[in-house]
Design a protein around this nucleic acid. Structure first.
Lengths: 308, 308
DNA sequence: TATCCTTACGGAATTCGTAAGCATG
DNA sequence: CATGCTTACGAATTCCGTAAGGATA
């Protein structure tokens, strides 16, 4: 048994059981891949893959069982390298953060600025993606840290910690009738066409839930991924906007008015996630601590459980 | 990085940093061991071992950090083999149970008899040891299952589940004055010299605690490892015995009388332990279920945490 | 001086890549 | 007949063991 064999097994599953692709992905020859699989199967005494003739179709039962452990071994091997790097050069390396528009644009700039000056040697990469893609990147090991409000808690491979809570706000053009009301209500909002986030983004589920609970039907005329798009369409008069309140900048959004809606929609909690069982370097922990203070012990405790 | 290098690192720590011994233990040459360590250190870019001149003295800080992960990788590699064996031949293999005299003699015979007839192909080995040795065997991977009343909960590498509860009983020779009392008391017992278990065995701590709580000093004239020795000395009149109540067999111990002492000494709970993170084969799970019914979900849940 | 580690080197074993052959859709 | 896997074989690499040399208690 050797690491190359295990890498090949993992890659074979990842690439849909096409050994030619596996060989390319691992920069080796296809016959070599074939032989490694055969050797490992011989050594373990069980077939890992279901075959029809010469084609591989999927994992056998033992293959499925074994895969989890294979994954963990390879992840741990990577952890060894990370730990060593950590000691070899504590302040050098790279950190990939995957996050959504909202966080990247409104919550993270300060953190990132501080981090850059504290760790000038660390190559920090910020990937803007959808919550689903963020989760996928974390699981695949393509990102170290994920930050989003949605879609992270349902993935068992991830550990999440809360960063901060925030509310939605309603934004309307200057002089809009809603701005003149003594107190905003869901009923009043529901009278107007609404411009807000797409499903699965930035607390949209909470918005829908609030209206549904109140028995109101709303007309969402535009569902966007980010607040900049929303603000643009509110500005041109397509409807009123519901955005994360930190997306409104009084100094810049001079054509719009923000109306607080803390009591109308439930609070949202932005989460930070890392993959279970991956080693976090010092600077990654510091980044996390800057975004989600006091989460260290949670991560230390839970990351023990390295299984998916 | 390869498995042999990791094995060598682990063995080096285990053998007290003597590479010659390591080479012997792994059936290879000492220069090969030396080179493997050097190669791994070069690849990782950190020194794993503290050296004075050419001698190895211990682990460096990075070495300590890395060791945990190295251990887990090697344990997982072993798990791969176990899982494969499991599928290759579900009802064949071996199972090593480490336990104390009391359990081996009085609690386990029926379980073992059933197991043997259910899994004739499994080579079952029973190791009688002290609680401390049982824990060591489990941690070192020399035993699959440990069963004892003491000394298992304090080892973080082990997961324990309760098997059953029992009480101590007092045993006296036929016609002994204690047997004539309407009700037994600690005060009455303390009048006589006592023959019981050694410290760290079979609930001795509970016995001491009961007397201490009652403010009584007792004269333990013999402290033995097992009840057979205790019964022998009670029989020859050296004192009265305090043993696990299941160690008294009315049919065979005809020269002795058992006096219930359920209310005098706190109950004892015999525990079953396995090492965290090791894969348990079907028949091992069945054995555990026979000894500690309903413990399956505890094991399944906790064995996720593979770290020490 | 005995123990223990490192370096050096030749041979064995493993791994790898190319080429050719066969099965599948 | 194009894609995909296996077998075969020579080359390259890695791994291992012996021998020799240097350091430490």
């Amino acid at each position: 048994m050797n690491f190359q064999q295990l890498r090949i097994v993992r890659e074979t599953v990842l690439r849909g059981f096409n050994l030619t692709e596996v060989a390319n992905a691992l920069f080796t020859s296809q016959p070599g891949v074939s032989k490694h699989i055969k050797d490992l199967e011989d050594e373990l005494g069980v077939e890992l893959f279901v075959r029809r003739g010469k084609r591989l179709l999927g994992l056998t039962e033992p293959g499925k069982e074994l895969l989890e452990t294979v994954d963990r071994i390879l992840r741990d091997a990577q952890n060894l390298r990370s730990i060593a790097d950590q000691f070899a050069s504590r302040e050098q390396g790279s950190l990939t953060v995957a996050t959504t528009h909202t966080q990247a644009r409104y919550a993270l700039p300060n953190v990132i600025k501080d981090f850059k000056s504290r760790y000038p040697q660390v190559h920090l990469a910020l990937h803007q993606s959808s919550p689903r893609e963020i989760a996928e990147m974390l699981v695949a090991g393509e990102a170290d840290i994920g930050i989003a409000t949605e879609g992270l808690t349902s993935v068992p491979e991830l550990i999440t910690v809360p960063c901060y809570s925030w509310h939605h706000a309603v934004i309307v053009p200057l002089g809009h009738p809603l701005a003149k009301l003594p107190e905003l209500s869901l009923q009043a909002i529901a009278e107007y066409p609404i411009v807000t986030y797409h499903e699965g983004f930035t607390g949209r589920a909470h918005i829908d839930a609030a209206f549904a609970d109140a028995g109101l039907n709303v007309d969402v005329v535009i569902s966007a991924i980010d607040a900049d798009v929303i603000k643009t369409y509110v500005d041109v008069g397509l409807g009123i906007g519901i955005v994360a309140s930190m997306a409104f900048n009084p100094a810049k959004d001079t054509e719009l008015v923000r109306l607080g809606a803390d009591k109308l929609f439930p609070a949202n909690t932005t989460l930070l996630a890392v993959r279970r069982g991956v080693y976090l370097r010092d600077y990654a922990r510091h980044f996390i601590d800057a975004v989600a203070p006091g989460s260290d012990e949670t991560l230390a405790r839970e990351s023990q459980a390295t299984d998916a």
